[in-house]
Design a protein around this nucleic acid. Structure first.
Lengths: 388, 388
DNA sequence: AGAGTTAGTAAACTCTACTAACAATCAAAG
DNA sequence: CTTTGATTGTTAGTAGAGTTTACTAACTCT
């Protein structure tokens, strides 16, 4: 009788639904996610404990768990060795050994990266492809090949593929524009899905990164992550959900004008864009100039502090308007740590209504190299398991 | 048998729930809301039409509608006079005649306002109280009295009370700080609820306003409304939901520093706050000075343009980061319309990555006088009927 | 008048979660 | 060492929600 439960729903005339009416099975799916989520974040526990945590009866939880056992999402770990009266509990946990995820990071300079990750976001295997000056369809082919390679490296059931890519990505996983690759309306999600047969999710790289930090890092439900690389991008979590934007372009802050006192010319045609102050190439150029000056050390310090100030000037209205609790920077640690980070923090406080304790904390992202890979994995976990 | 359905749920041991498990009845409640919502926005239709719109079967919709008929939320309007084959349809509509809402606006200068509104946001009755220099508990008592007066004016079943107040309001309807009234942690929602016996919702005035504009105005799911009055506040809709912020202080942009070139001293102690440029008192002061100059007309123009520019400088990073589709200004039309609005629009485009067509539209809110009253009503409709 | 179409309802079935009751298994008290 | 109490997990039966199937009612068109 349990076996009947997995059969696909009768899709009927239910194709042209506009409103999202709730069926009993939707509630069931939600409760299954809650079980997975609880186990994923709180670790192994008994059915009875799950029942108390979720507010569902033991009977219902038992049924949910047996369903998840069949699907391979959770496993029994044997009796708890806790000593107390009563029948000993059987611990169940999310199937940490038997499930894996592919994460991909297409936003690095001249290299496409992929990895096999476990459910806790640990990287188990890495695969890479260097790309020289390929663009367009050539890059797509490299991505598809790399994905297949990564899939072959998995040692357990794969839940799906997550991708963080430069450019603007719509809700259907279509990369509408990615100047670096000269992509225009590339249906990356569908291509990967057809190629690998696995559920796939595609987001902007900074959006993936903020998912990673939101899940494994601080975990505030109102935060921004600014990713500093070739350009400057960001991902925002507002009220616990990622902001997508009206045109799927939320987080695109690289070409917002900062301040009211000019600045250098940007390749986009405007002056004073955030990217002209903050991108890695811009910073390195400015630091090289500073190194040639009479007082190289203090000159470098000024460069970094000014960059931090500029970022804070752009962020202050965002932090204020959204009442964000955290500002996280992700990028080359040697550039961001120290004067730049300090300047961001200080300038941000100066420009916001002063309060004690400070309503916003500023820090670096842990593990910046792999943050996109892990964020991409989080996207899959969230989508497939409702976990994170 | 239908009568049994309304009995309260068996609350059981379900008090210490942490996770929000879904019960079948939650799904039912959601579907009931969908019916109300569809009727509210699309107008009268038959059960069969509802069925097609929602993707539920006619049988289920019939059951939902009969439930709503019993509760008085919808009414039958008689046969549709459409001519076509088949049994004539019986139109049902949300009970526009038999349901009303109280809206309150505490953010006006020296006057507390309340109104009885219908489900379409039309104002049916108004009540006001002028306040001189009352603060603290005195104002609370005035509010409670005013609410009772408004309740007495209602001519149909009241769904609840919505309030837009200055200050910061947390999710429990507690006004944590409201300097104008010298309020600190005033549990306004609970006080009103106890006093009137009606479900009550309290939000910041700008947040209420953005609800009104989101529902009755443009309706973009990614927008900001800036309310210019004694101070400057804002409300944001991100992905269709109102941004609350980590400390319930989202939208508080009055004291964000704007630009990098100083500005006048603000009462908060900083220089260059948005309020020093944009609030009604600041603008009127600057316009008075302009009037005394040699070329009064062009001087006034400069004042207004500069204010608009400053607002756009502060908004540009927010619009860019959130990819907002609409910026709406609400306040005295004679100040905002013309040069100020034009300057906001122009400066915003200059400071964002140029695109065609422009991704963001800038406009004035319709009906600025009553926008908080209507927004407060929307909050109740949303909360009680799931409508808007 | 007959055929075809559409609206609304009734009965029976499925799925979900609930209550009630029970067997298994342990610790602690007597 | 037995009894008592506590706790876990399962079985059996029930109520709610939505579905399928089948029906009646009421209209247009030929």
């Amino acid at each position: 009788m349990e076996a009947l439960r997995d059969r696909p729903r009768t899709d009927r005339h239910r194709t042209d639904r506009t409103g999202a009416a709730t069926l009993p099975s939707d509630g069931r799916a939600h409760n299954l996610s809650l079980v997975r989520q609880t186990l994923h974040s709180a670790g192994p526990m008994s059915r009875a404990e799950l029942s108390r945590t979720l507010g569902l009866t033991r009977v219902t939880v038992s049924d949910l768990v047996s369903d998840l056992l069949e699907r391979g999402h959770v496993v029994e770990l044997g009796q708890s060795d806790e000593v107390r009266p009563g029948k000993p509990a059987i611990l169940v946990d999310i199937n940490r050994q038997g499930l894996q995820v592919i994460g991909m990071d297409l936003a690095e300079n001249s290299v496409l990266r992929a990895a096999v990750l476990d459910l806790d976001g640990n990287i188990l295997e890495r695969v890479e492809r260097t790309i020289a000056s390929e663009t367009g369809r050539d890059v797509v082919n490299q991505v598809l090949g790399l994905a297949s390679e990564a899939v072959a490296r998995a040692t357990a059931t794969l839940l799906g593929i997550g991708v963080g890519t430069p450019g603007i990505v719509n809700a259907d996983g279509v990369v509408t524009t990615a100047p670096n690759f000269e992509w225009k309306d590339v249906a990356l999600r569908d291509l990967l899905q057809e190629n690998t047969g696995l559920p796939t999710l595609v987001s902007n790289d900074a959006d993936a990164a903020v998912h990673a930090d939101h899940t494994f890092g601080g975990g505030s439900d109102d935060m921004v992550l600014v990713k500093i690389g070739r350009g400057v991008g960001s991902g925002l979590i507002v009220g616990g959900r990622r902001a997508r934007g009206a045109h799927s372009a939320a987080g695109e802050i690289g070409h917002v004008t900062v301040g009211t006192d000019g600045g250098t010319m940007c390749k986009c045609g405007k002056t004073g864009c955030l990217e002209t102050w903050m991108s890695v190439p811009s910073l390195e150029r400015a630091l090289a100039e500073a190194a040639a000056s009479s007082e190289p050390e203090s000159a470098a310090d000024v460069v970094l502090r000014e960059a931090g100030e500029r970022l804070a000037i752009a962020l202050a209205p965002v932090v204020g308007a959204l009442d964000l609790a955290e500002v996280v920077l992700s990028g080359p640690r040697e550039l961001l740590e120290g004067p730049l980070l300090d300047a961001v923090q200080q300038t941000l406080l100066e420009r916001l209504l002063h309060q004690d304790p400070s309503p916003v904390s500023v820090r670096l992202a842990a593990d910046a190299q792999d943050i996109v890979l892990r964020g991409a994995a989080v996207m899959v976990l969230w989508n497939q398991l409702g976990v994170a």
